[in-house]
Nucleic acid binder design. Structure first.
Length: 822
RNA sequence: GCCGAAGUGGCGGAAUGGUAGACGCGGCGGUCUCAAACACCGUUGGGCAUAACGCCCGUGGGAGUUCGACUCUCCCCUUCGGCACCA
C-alpha cells in the first residue's frame, strides 16, 4: 500500500466473513445439484494459472463473474459457477530448475494458497467440482483425446519451424513471443526446424469463421476472422517443362488473377525445394549464398515490413500460359514458403511489394488494369484499385472485376489451374519440449513406427523422479525408465515420445469436465454434459481471443464429429472484462506498483474490495485503482450498515408523510428495475451507483422520520437483497440482522412494479431555440396542448419570445417543449 | 501501413437524439474535538454578474444534418489495443 487509508468499516468484517464462510460451508448453500426444478445456467470464468498469489486482476475478473452468477441464481436459475486451476506450465518447471522444488509440489502448494485467497473473496464456487489439470485423472483424458484425434487423422506428426529461446533453452508458444523477443528473458527468438505434433485445426477453418451460433464481442469475432485469414483466389500454373524436371509447372496462388497478363517475373520462397533445381550453373553460388542468408534471419526480421526487399535471379524462366511470355524466376525472402504454394507471380504494376522489388531490380512494369484516367504512361506507384483490363488479350476492355471472373473461368477451362481458398491459420503445434505437461501418448517402434499407447494403458504418467537440469532437453528424454518401453504391437524395445502437450490442450475442454468433475469412465459424463453444456455465459480476458478461445471452439467441433457431444460451440455468450491498472500503468513487480488485495481485504473486508472493483468503471473497460476511491465505497458499506441496523419501530412514534412514503417506494422500485437491467448486462458500476442513491434516499428519509416502519423495512430488505451478489458477507449478516431466516443468497431477486415505479409528476423542460430556459413541474399525463400552453405562458419564457415570431412548438411527450422563435 | 475501440469537470466515470456532468473521489466551508484524524452536514464545470428564479461558454478540433447533437454523418488530431510483406 502506497498511501494512508483512513476509512475503516464500522463493523467487524473479519468476524462476519469468518462466520459466514463457515456457515455457508456447513449448510452447503453453494453445492450445485444437476437436477433442480429451476432451469440450469452455466456461468464460467476462465480458470487461473496457479502462480501462487491471487492478484488484484484475479479479484477484478472473478468478482465480476461471481456477481453475475449470483445475480442469475437469485433470478431463478440453478447456477453452476465452478472454479479450477490451469496447473501445467513453464513457471512450475522453472521453479524446479532454479529452486529445486518439484513442479508438482510447487503447483499444489500454490493452489492451496490460492484456494484460500479465492475463498476469502466469498465466491459461490462449488469446490466439489474443482479441476486441477496436472493430476493424472485429468490429463489422462488429454491423452485419450489426442489418440481419438490421431485415429481420425486430426493429430499428425510433421517437421516444422518453431520459436526457440536460446536463453531459456526451450521452445516458446507464439503468444510468448512479443515483438520477436522472449517475454521471459527478452532474448531474440530463433527459428528451429523440429519434428512436431500438430492438431489439424485447419480442417475446421471454414466452420470457425461461422459465428452465427455465438454471441461474442465483435472485436473477438474480428480477431478470430483475421486469424483464420480466409482469402479467395486462383492457383495458376507457369510452365517450366523446358528444364526436364519431374515437376513441369510452378503453381502460384493469387487473389488478383485479373492481373495475370501483367506478370513480369515469378518469385519462389528461398526454402522452396525447386530453387536449387532450377538455378542455372552461373547463378548457383549467388543463390546458395542468398538461401543461407535468409535461413539465418529470425522470423521477425524476415517479416518486417520496414526491411528492404532483396532477391536473386535463378537464371531460369517460366512461361505464362495466358500470353505465352517467358518471364524470369527469382527467389526472394518476401515470399513465405508457408503460405499458399510458396510461389508468387510478380505483377509490379498492381502489387505494392512487387512494384518496389521490380524498381530495385529493373524488372519491367506493365499495366494491365488501367486506372480510370490513365494516360498510358508509367505509374508512380502500384495501382491496386479496380480499373479496365488492358494488355490482357481477349479480356481487354472488361472491368477488372469482370476480368477476375472471366480469366479464372478461362484458366479452369484450359486446365491451367483452379479457384482456391487459402487460409492464413496454420495447424496447431501442440508439442512442447518440456517436462511439466501432458506426455504425448505415442511410442516409436523400430518396426511398427508410430504406435499409439493403448487406451487401457492410459494415463501415461509423468515420472516424478525426473532430473531438472537447464539443458534445454526435456527431463523426460533423460529418464531411461520413462523412455524405454516395449512396443504395444510387437513387443520390441521401443521409445516413448518425450515431448509434452501445449497447456492450451488442457483448457480446450476443461469446461466439459466441471459438469461431472470426478468422472472416471470418460472425460465427462454424457448425461451431465446434456444438463449443463454448452456454457451459457463465459467471462475472461481478451488476451485469449485467438488462442484459447479458438482452440476450444476447434475442440468442441472435433468432439462433436467424434460423436462425443452434440453441440457446435463451447461458449454461447462471451463477455470480456477489462484490465485493472494502477497509477495509469499496468501493474508490475519491477515497477513496484502492485496492489495486493489481501492487504485491503484485511483492512476493509472482501465486500468493500469487491464493491470498489466493480464500481470504479464499466467492467469491460477495466480501470485505475485508487486508494482514496475505495474509501467512498467503504463509507457506503458503513452507511448501509447503519441504515439496516436502525430500529424501525422508532418510526411508529412520529407522524407519517404519505408523499414521503410514496417517494421512497418509487425510489425503491426504480432502483430494482435499474439494478436488474444493469447486473444482467454487466454494468456493475451503474448498478452500484443506483444502490448508493437508494441508500442516500433512505438516510434522508430517516432524518425526516416520516415513513411507516413497513415502508422502511421493505426498502431496507430489498436494498440488502440487491447488494447480495456484490457484497455477499455484509448482505448475509444484515439479512440476518433484519430478522430474516435462511440465506439471502437463496432468496428470489426483488421484482419491481412498473406502476409503483411510475412518476406522478414530471419536470417539463422548456427550451427556446434549443436552449434551456425553464423547468416546470407538471402532472405526468399532461396533454400536449396544455404542456405547450404552460410553456408559452411561463414568465421565464416570455422575455425570450417577446417580439419574435413563434414559428413552431415541438412537444416531446413527458419530456420537453421546444419553442422555435426567430 | 491496415483494422478496431476510445477521447466528457482537478480525478474515476454517468447520460447513446431531448435538463451534460448521475454516483463516487478530491477540494472548499461548517459541525464534532483541547487539537488532529475519522465521521457527519453543506457546497463544488468555467466565466460574466446589475447578484437574478439572470446571461454566456463548455463533452479532442473543424464542418454538416436537426427545432434540438456527448449522442448521427464527413474530415482531421491524439491515445490505447490488435494485425502487419498472407501474394
Amino acid at each position: 500500500m502506497t498511501s494512508v487509508r483512513t476509512t475503516s468499516t464500522r463493523y467487524d468484517h473479519q468476524a462476519i466473513e469468518a462466520k459466514w464462510r463457515e456457515r455457508w460451508e456447513k449448510d452447503g448453500i453453494y453445492r450445485v445439484d444437476d437436477d433442480d426444478s429451476r432451469p440450469n445456467w452455466y456461468e464460467l470464468h476462465m480458470y487461473p494459472y496457479p502462480s501462487g498469489d491471487l492478484h488484484i486482476g484475479h479479484w477484478y475478473a472473478m468478482s465480476g463473474a461471481d456477481l453475475h452468477a449470483r445475480f442469475k441464481r437469485m433470478s431463478g436459475f440453478n447456477v453452476l459457477h465452478p472454479m479450477g486451476f490451469d496447473a501445467f506450465g513453464l513457471n512450475a518447471e522453472n521453479a524446479a530448475i532454479q529452486r529445486g522444488i518439484h513442479p508438482f509440489k510447487w503447483t499444489m502448494s500454490n493452489i492451496e494458497n490460492m484456494r484460500l485467497q479465492l475463498r476469502s473473496m466469498g465466491p459461490m464456487y462449488d469446490w466439489d467440482r474443482e479441476i486441477i489439470t496436472c493430476t493424472p485423472d485429468y490429463y489422462k483424458w488429454n491423452q485419450w483425446f489426442f489418440l481419438q484425434f490421431y485415429k481420425k487423422g486430426l493429430a499428425y506428426r510433421g517437421f516444422a519451424p518453431v520459436n526457440w529461446c536460446p536463453s531459456c533453452k526451450t521452445v516458446l508458444a507464439n503468444e510468448q513471443v512479443i515483438d520477436g523477443m522472449c517475454e521471459r528473458s527478452d532474448t531474440p527468438v530463433e527459428q528451429r526446424d523440429m519434428n512436431q505434433w500438430f492438431f489439424k485445426i485447419t480442417d475446421y477453418a471454414e466452420e470457425l469463421l461461422d459465428q452465427s451460433k455465438i454471441d461474442w464481442p465483435e472485436r473477438i469475432n474480428t480477431m478470430q476472422t483475421n486469424w483464420v485469414g480466409r482469402s479467395e483466389g486462383v492457383e495458376v500454373e507457369f510452365d517450366i517443362s523446358e528444364y526436364g524436371l519431374e515437376q513441369k509447372t510452378l503453381r502460384t496462388f493469387t487473389t488478383r488473377i485479373d492481373t495475370v497478363f501483367g506478370v513480369t517475373f515469378v518469385v519462389l520462397a528461398p526454402e522452396h525445394p525447386l530453387v536449387p533445381e532450377l538455378t542455372i550453373k552461373e547463378q548457383k553460388a549467388e543463390v546458395a549464398d542468398y538461401i543461407h542468408q535468409a535461413s539465418l534471419e529470425t522470423e521477425i526480421e524476415r517479416l518486417s515490413t520496414e526491411k528492404e526487399k532483396t532477391g536473386v535471379f535463378t537464371g531460369a524462366y517460366c512461361i505464362n500460359r495466358l500470353n505465352g511470355e517467358r518471364v524470369p524466376i527469382l527467389t526472394a525472402d518476401y515470399v513465405l514458403h508457408t503460405y499458399g504454394t510458396g510461389v508468387v507471380m510478380g505483377v509490379p504494376a498492381h502489387d505494392a511489394r512487387d512494384f518496389i522489388f521490380a524498381k530495385k531490380y529493373g524488372l519491367p512494369i506493365r499495366v494491365v488494369v488501367a486506372p480510370p484516367d490513365w494516360d498510358g504512361g508509367d505509374l508512380e506507384d502500384a495501382y491496386l484499385a479496380e480499373g479496365t483490363q488492358v494488355n490482357s488479350g481477349e479480356f481487354d476492355g472488361l472491368s477488372s472485376s469482370e476480368g477476375l471472373q472471366k480469366i479464372a473461368d478461362h484458366i479452369e477451362a484450359q486446365g491451367w489451374g483452379e479457384r482456391k481458398v487459402n487460409y492464413r491459420m496454420r495447424d496447431w503445434l501442440v508439442s512442447r519440449q518440456r517436462y511439466w505437461g501432458t506426455p504425448i501418448p505415442i511410442i516409436y517402434c523400430p518396426e511398427c513406427g508410430e504406435v499409439p499407447v493403448p487406451d487401457d494403458e492410459l494415463p501415461v504418467v509423468l515420472p516424478e523422479d525426473a532430473e531438472f537440469l537447464p539443458t534445454g532437453e526435456s527431463p523426460l528424454a533423460l529418464h531411461e525408465g520413462f523412455v524405454n518401453v516395449p512396443c504395444p504391437d510387437c513387443g520390441r524395445p521401443s521409445k516413448r515420445e518425450t515431448d509434452t502437450m501445449d497447456t492450451f490442450v488442457d483448457s480446450s475442454w476443461y469446461f466439459l469436465r466441471y459438469a461431472s468433475a470426478g468422472f472416471q469412465d470418460g472425460p465427462f459424463d454424457p448425461e451431465a454434459i446434456k444438463k449443463w453444456n454448452p456454457v451459457d455465459q463465459y467471462t475472461g480476458g481478451v488476451e485469449h481471443a485467438v488462442m484459447h478461445l479458438l482452440y476450444a471452439r476447434f475442440f468442441t467441433k472435433a468432439l462433436r464429429d467424434l460423436g462425443l457431444i452434440d453441440f457446435d460451440e463451447p461458449f454461447v455468450r462471451l463477455f470480456n472484462q477489462g484490465t485493472i491498472i494502477y497509477q495509469h500503468q499496468k501493474m508490475s513487480k519491477s515497477r513496484g506498483n502492485v496492489i495486493a488485495p489481501d492487504d485491503y481485504v484485511n483492512e476493509v473486508g472482501a465486500d468493500v474490495v469487491r464493491s470498489y472493483l466493480m464500481f470504479l468503471g464499466p467492467w469491460e473497460a477495466g480501470g485505475d485503482w485508487s486508494d482514496s476511491g475505495i474509501n467512498g465505497v467503504a463509507r457506503w458499506a458503513n452507511r448501509v450498515w447503519e441504515v439496516a441496523n436502525r430500529d424501525s419501530s422508532e418510526l411508529d412514534h412520529s407522524p407519517v408523510n404519505e408523499n414521503s412514503v410514496r417517494d421512497v417506494q418509487r425510489a425503491l422500485h426504480k432502483t430494482i428495475k435499474k439494478v436488474s437491467d444493469d447486473m444482467d448486462s454487466f454494468k456493475f458500476n451503474t448498478a452500484i451507483a443506483s444502490l448508493m442513491e437508494l441508500t442516500n434516499t433512505l438516510t434522508q428519509a430517516w432524518e425526516r422520520s416520516d415513513l411507516t416502519s413497513d415502508a422502511w423495512n421493505e426498502a431496507v430488505s430489498n436494498l440488502v437483497a440487491m447488494m447480495a451478489p456484490i457484497t455477499p458477507y455484509l448482505s448475509e449478516e444484515l439479512w440476518e440482522a433484519t430478522g430474516h431466516e435462511s440465506s439471502v443468497h437463496t432468496q428470489s431477486w426483488p421484482e419491481w412494479d412498473e406502476s409503483l415505479a411510475a412518476d406522478e409528476t414530471i419536470t417539463l423542460v422548456v427550451q427556446v431555440n434549443g436552449r434551456l430556459r425553464d423547468r416546470i413541474e407538471v402532472p405526468v399525463g399532461i396533454e400536449e396542448d396544455t404542456a405547450k400552453e404552460t410553456a408559452l405562458s411561463s414568465p421565464k419564457i416570455q422575455p425570450h419570445i417577446q417580439g419574435k415570431d413563434v414559428s413552431k412548438v415541438i412537444y416531446v411527450p413527458g419530456r420537453l417543449v421546444n419553442i422555435v422563435a426567430g
